[in-house]
Simulated assay, not measured.
Amino acid sequence: MTDAPDLELPRGIALAWGVAANPQRGPKREMSVERIVEAAVEIADAEGLGAVSMAAVAAKLGFTPMSLYRYVTAKDDLILLMQEEATGLPSEETLTAGDWQARLTALYREQVEQYVRHPWVLEVPITGSPATPNSAAWMDAGLAALADTPLSHEERLSVLLLVTGAARWTGIVLAGYQRAERDGGLSGVDITAREDAMFRALITADAYPHLRAAIDAGVFLDESDPFVFGLERGLDGVAAYMDVVAQGRTVERVPLMPLEDADIADDKKYREARKAVRDAEKALRDARKLERQAARDARERRARVRGDS
């Protein structure tokens, strides 16, 4: 830990960094924050994040819930420590995978593996930048991969966000399919075949011409990895940007998109205006649906007329 000696750390963050004060009293039998977190992770891995409670963890360890509160004073702190445990550290193989693109791709793959191994982590709300040791280690590894590039520190962080965002989205999708396989007793091949059949039955060339063309081309049965393809093309774009920077040219950075103004979010007239926009968008979608149906009907009538003549 460095700097800011007057900073009062939240209890969960202090526990993660190992600088929280130990409880003065505790159960006679051995108890520790580490044991509590390990037990909670085991419950989440087996039953999901919703199954984790102080009572459930205490029961698994053979203690009373009050015993746990001497070590972890709030469930939010416990979830933070569980996330830290599940995140782990990047492997040595990933840290030395090759050039910056190879290292970032390896970091991406390893993060996806962590999400698939502990899918409940994806349910933990994002409330800000990570401030725990393992999370910091992943960030440091990504920035280290870009250390010898001509990018600024801000640009390196932006590239890291591209990689971690891709990993999280891939993890969400793969964890969902994994859950579907487990709950439905189907293999991944079975699920994709069923999805392809469903799309072929529902998607028409009249209503969705480009999607239908993709379906006919077999995109939902293709075995290549669309997520890695997207990441690699994104990194190719970063490489092209590096060439621009190396030539001494400057590119204007886009300002951060502002979040909706919280000061007016509860204003009645503002809420009514937002609802009116949503209603109008829905009406437009419905009108376009009617238009497509009318076009199909017109084609059918014209075909019948031609047939009768």
Rank of each mutant, 00 (worst) to 15 (best):
T96M: 06
R212H: 14
A175Y: 04
D190E: 14
G176D: 03
L211W: 11
T164V: 13
A97M: 02
A97Y: 03
G185K: 11
F199H: 10
E93T: 09
H118E: 00
R182Q: 15
W138V: 04
W100D: 09
V124C: 05
V159Y: 09
A97Q: 03
P119Q: 04
A180S: 12
L202C: 14
G176Q: 04
R103S: 04
T94K: 01
T105G: 00
G98F: 01
D99Y: 01
T127A: 09
L151V: 08
W100C: 04
P125G: 03
S152R: 12
L143Y: 10
Q101A: 00
S152F: 08
D183L: 15
M139N: 15
G128T: 06
E113F: 00
A167I: 02
G171F: 05
P125S: 01
S158K: 13
D206V: 11
I191Q: 08
R182A: 15
G165M: 13
T94A: 10
P130F: 03
P150S: 09
A201V: 06
G184Y: 10
G176K: 04
L157W: 15
A213M: 14
T94N: 02
E155C: 08
S129Y: 10
R200L: 12
T105D: 01
D196R: 12
L95E: 02
E181K: 14
E110Q: 11
W100G: 03
P90T: 05
L160R: 03
Q111Y: 00
R156N: 12
A180H: 07
D183Y: 09
Y177S: 02
E123A: 08
G188Q: 15
L89Y: 05
E155H: 11
V189K: 14
I172W: 10
Y208G: 00
N134E: 07
A167E: 07
P133Y: 07
G165Q: 13
A214P: 02
I203Y: 10
A144N: 10
